[in-house]
Write a protein that binds this DNA or RNA. Structure first.
Lengths: 225, 225
DNA sequence: AACTGTGAAAACTTTCACAGCC
DNA sequence: GGCTGTGAAAGTTTTCACAGTT
């Protein structure tokens, strides 16, 4: 049933573990800029909100990078994590839906800084089509498939209204997109060929209101890092 | 150490379970608008990306709302979930940091629609202070504590640069904020009196690049809903 | 027949604790 | 002495499967 892949312990790693790897990487880049040579699992844990055991376990899935008694070499670990996360190159991103959120992302310099090039933007509103936002021309939704294919867009940031999200996602999948980051607040039904992550401000705010009222409020008061 | 609270099975419920509750609620509101009276765990699961067993377990933590052989009453379950999530009333929110993301959120009608009133905005840039964005006056960071206290702000959306995040979060905590939704991409060290959730576009995009390269790409190709 | 509510099992994730190395 | 790498233990979440109810 399951076929074991080869050497370097290729176990399925959880979403939360991947998120932690990103957090370690962010910290490592900072340390690297600051000239730090070596870092311990305790330091990595503190700077990223994990525990030191978690850091060591997470890293051990991909090999053994550290030196006992000393710690992890900052530069090397950073490079390895970039490799693991697929950040050894730049990625071509399209923003689909140029409303409040889509527009904000077009102007968000952090994407570029982290290896993501926004190469196209789309909107259904004819008044927006043809205009330029932060140096990216807004195109018609009709051109979606063609542009995705021709420009080799690998990741789409989906910021259209919920009612349109399903259709647009299906079209992106059909056009061969690799991954979708959805702000649409709707579960997308796509086959497993497309990687999907969702972000939802309202959902997270509701997590806070839960914590602040009734059931949730009861537990809080102990919690630590 | 742990003190058992009372009756209605007050077990600690996980963040992901809370997120699912929000998703059920969203769907229930839609069904309610559409005039649907009853809904099964299978329907709820399909519309929210969970499994039917998950739906039943999640709901069973808070009591027993359904009728065997029939399903869950839409209106009633919606009201109960709103109660559980603390959405029986409106919440007072402040946006701290009016850059790309903060500004987008100020204009984001979905917050209001879902029970969150943005009652204040803050920025450190003197050029922005005093201006108005989407009907909200931008105030000086110096007024943070005073306004939070006087206007009874319960939740802060933190959208300042990472370098400032720690300080600002500490000030918000000191001013008695209840919860923080952070876009700052930095782990906030706060004691457990403040509920914290983080959102991070770059982190989620890196989750996608992981899935699309090397280690991650290996597994994908099977996955289903 | 349809569907909930729930114990028990399985799967997964986190934490512990320590041998091994520098 | 300080710190990694890792099995084993503990804890948590998900899934299964079915008795019970309409």
């Amino acid at each position: 049933m399951t076929s074991f892949t080869n050497a370097t312990s290729m176990r399925r790693i959880s979403d939360s573990a991947v998120r932690r790897l990103s957090a370690y990487l962010r910290l490592l880049r900072e340390l690297s800029r600051a000239g730090r040579r070596v870092v311990s699992s305790v330091d990595l844990a503190e700077g990223s909100g994990a525990t030191s055991a978690q850091v060591r376990k997470d890293l051990s899935h991909f090999g053994s990078f550290g030196t006992r008694g000393r710690g992890y070499p900052v530069q090397e670990l950073r490079d390895r994590l970039e490799g693991i996360l697929g950040l050894g190159r730049r990625w071509r991103v399209a923003v689909v839906g140029v409303g409040k959120i889509g527009a904000a992302l077009l102007g968000y310099r952090d994407l570029e800084r982290n290896g993501f090039d926004v190469v196209a933007a789309f909107d259904a509103d004819p008044d927006k089509v043809g205009t330029e936002k932060f140096g990216v021309r807004v195109r018609s939704m009709e051109d979606l498939e063609a542009v995705v294919r021709d420009s080799g867009v690998e990741i789409a940031i989906l910021a259209v209204p919920p009612s349109a999200a399903g259709d647009v996602a299906a079209r992106l999948a059909e056009a061969g997109i690799g991954g979708i980051l959805s702000f649409a607040g709707t579960g997308l039904e796509l086959d497993g060929r497309v990687a999907v992550r969702a972000m939802d401000v309202t959902l997270e705010l509701e997590g806070l209101t839960y914590a602040l009222s009734g059931a949730g409020a009861a537990d809080r008061g102990a919690a630590e890092t």
